[in-house]
Design a binder for these strands. Sequence first.
DNA 1: CCTACCGATCGGTAGG
DNA 2: CCTACCGATCGGTAGG
Lengths: 216, 216
Amino acid sequence: MARSRSAEFAIQRDTIVRTAARLFARDGYPATSMSGLAEACGISKPLLYHYVNDKYQLLTEITDGHVSRLVALVDEVAADAATHRWAPQQHLRQLITRFVEEYALARDDHGVLTQDVKFLGEADRARVLGKERQVVEAFAHCIVAARADWQPADAATLAKPLTMLLFGMMNWLFTWLRPDGPLGHHEMAPVVADLFLGGLPGVELPADVIERCRTA
Amino acid sequence: MARSRSAEFAIQRDTIVRTAARLFARDGYPATSMSGLAEACGISKPLLYHYVNDKYQLLTEITDGHVSRLVALVDEVAADAATHRWAPQQHLRQLITRFVEEYALARDDHGVLTQDVKFLGEADRARVLGKERQVVEAFAHCIVAARADWQPADAATLAKPLTMLLFGMMNWLFTWLRPDGPLGHHEMAPVVADLFLGGLPGVELPADVIERCRTA
DNA sequence: CCTACCGATCGGTAGG
DNA sequence: CCTACCGATCGGTAGG
């Protein structure tokens, strides 16, 4: 059965969005031209504008689509954790593994998310950052559960910063990990988990810093 | 005593380079216009071009200047380590502290280095990445020394990736740490060191992965 | 002849 | 679905 016109349209459009993500990730949003994108897609510029409204629409679609999948991934892993009654450490390890896997699959989209979110307008940026915050909170909640010795003030001060250190490792991964290198993301995910879970029990802040943050 | 004309020139020029770093870090190199830079400096565009040859010169100066200070910083800390006969763990902790301190002082420059190095020409990029590699190797050397149990193949496989995880945490720090927040980089540097040094002893890769990387 | 600097505009190219 | 264009703005420089 032949595909309908709208199915053909959706396929061609998706190719364009994938190509745009690749170029945005490589050159950055402002340095990517729509002519260059048309050329990379093997189509004319007017035809490109048959599939997309404007350059900005590509940016919102790539960033919002990716961060929405990350929010869904957090929920998926939480469901698995409930089913299997995972300890917080195992839950966090699974979050790390699944996120590194997703980042590898959506390498370009993730590059655009970390690099070009600043070019979103205020409303779109707020929506994307809101979803990022949901993801961060899921990780932070898991980290707090893994540190049963923390007082509420310790958790309030340290959970988010430690989460961001973890995201620093994961987000930075794909800036240096070569896809054709001997070590892939599949080998690195457990290393990230081992390093973070191994270091987590020993992290603490001086009591006066905790107190200052609590009253700030 | 009045400053000489060339001293006035150097001061005004430095102000321009600092402002360019701030705008590049905020908006990215391609999205920053020379008209906007001139306006931010409170001077006309022709006067801006009296101080700098072109836009690209600003990018090379900011990135190369910053990474050169990082290379010097590595040597400084190595000298301190030799003087005080620091253990590798203490040496690494000091590297982390001093680097986080330098990143905080040169926040804009570091943002430009991590974000806009791709807009350098081939020769300039090679020079900057070469200096980055020097810095990475100093950290990696320290990490290997801190893991006395490693065989040469373990060190060859794990040292660079672990170094990059550490740089991921440090480089990502200033994307989320608010300068006016209750927690500053001064409090976060020991947290980064505790987390990394606490997790380092427990990190390992399966023997077959080490073997595959050794023969790759 | 040098420096410091302005108002105006250059050749090209961006998104659309 | 292409050629031919636009309003604007880019990086960089002219004359005075």
